[in-house]
């Protein structure tokens, strides 16, 4: 399995490393990309300055390139706005880890080329340093020494991710090449 270049890197990054920003269950797209910034939807870098603002007002200021967003159940529930995973990615986040994802958010994240990993997140805490090996499907929490694994993506999604997202996929193949 191969993942697309992340955060503008030229090379495909297989090992991600960064700090954890921990969130709870049901982090909705309204919390990630509030409707009051609707007018910024055509100005995503500006909108990214408000990412997750209603869940943690200081997140956008503190997040560093390569960091992780870690949620509980039902991450990304709510609207279909693709702006939600897009601005998380634009803020520099390298992957979102959660126990479960809402369906549309999950598909959108793959479509914009942002890894979303389903794993047990209870043992990961705010501020932990973690290392994710996308190839091995392994997460190491360097702060508490725990190793976790995550479920592999369906093949159709891997194909799309490998092409840098859906638009890249169609550009490359001229059509869906999902099997």
């Amino acid at each position: 399995m191969q993942y697309p270049p992340i955060n503008g890197e030229k090379e495909v990054v297989m090992i991600l490393k960064g700090k954890v920003f921990k969130f709870g269950d049901d982090i909705s797209t309204d919390l990630i990309a509030p409707g009051r910034y609707f007018h910024l939807r055509s100005n995503l870098p500006e909108m990214a300055k408000h990412v997750l603002e209603d869940a943690d007002p200081s997140f956008a200021v503190k997040v560093q390139k390569g960091d992780f967003v870690v949620g509980g159940d039902n991450f990304g529930c709510g609207s279909s706005r693709e702006h939600a995973p897009t601005i998380i990615k634009l803020a520099g986040v390298s992957a979102v880890l959660a126990k479960s994802f809402a369906r549309i958010f999950y598909r959108n994240a793959i479509n914009v080329g942002m890894p979303v990993l389903i794993c047990e997140t209870d043992k990961i805490s705010q501020g932990d340093e973690i290392e994710v090996n996308l190839e091995k499907g392994e997460i190491r929490d360097l702060t508490n020494g725990i190793t976790l694994s995550f479920a592999p993506l369906p093949k159709a999604m891997i194909n799309i991710l490998n092409d840098g997202g859906l638009v890249g996929h169609i550009q490359k193949h001229g059509d869906f090449k999902i099997d």
Binding site: S80, E82, I104, N108, V112, L166, V167, I170
Partner: peptide, 13 residues
């Protein structure tokens, strides 16, 4: 419901 990219490609193809 789907996101913008999915529907965009759905519309085109």
């Amino acid at each position: 419901g789907m996101g913008s990219s999915d529907v965009a490609i759905g519309i085109a193809l």
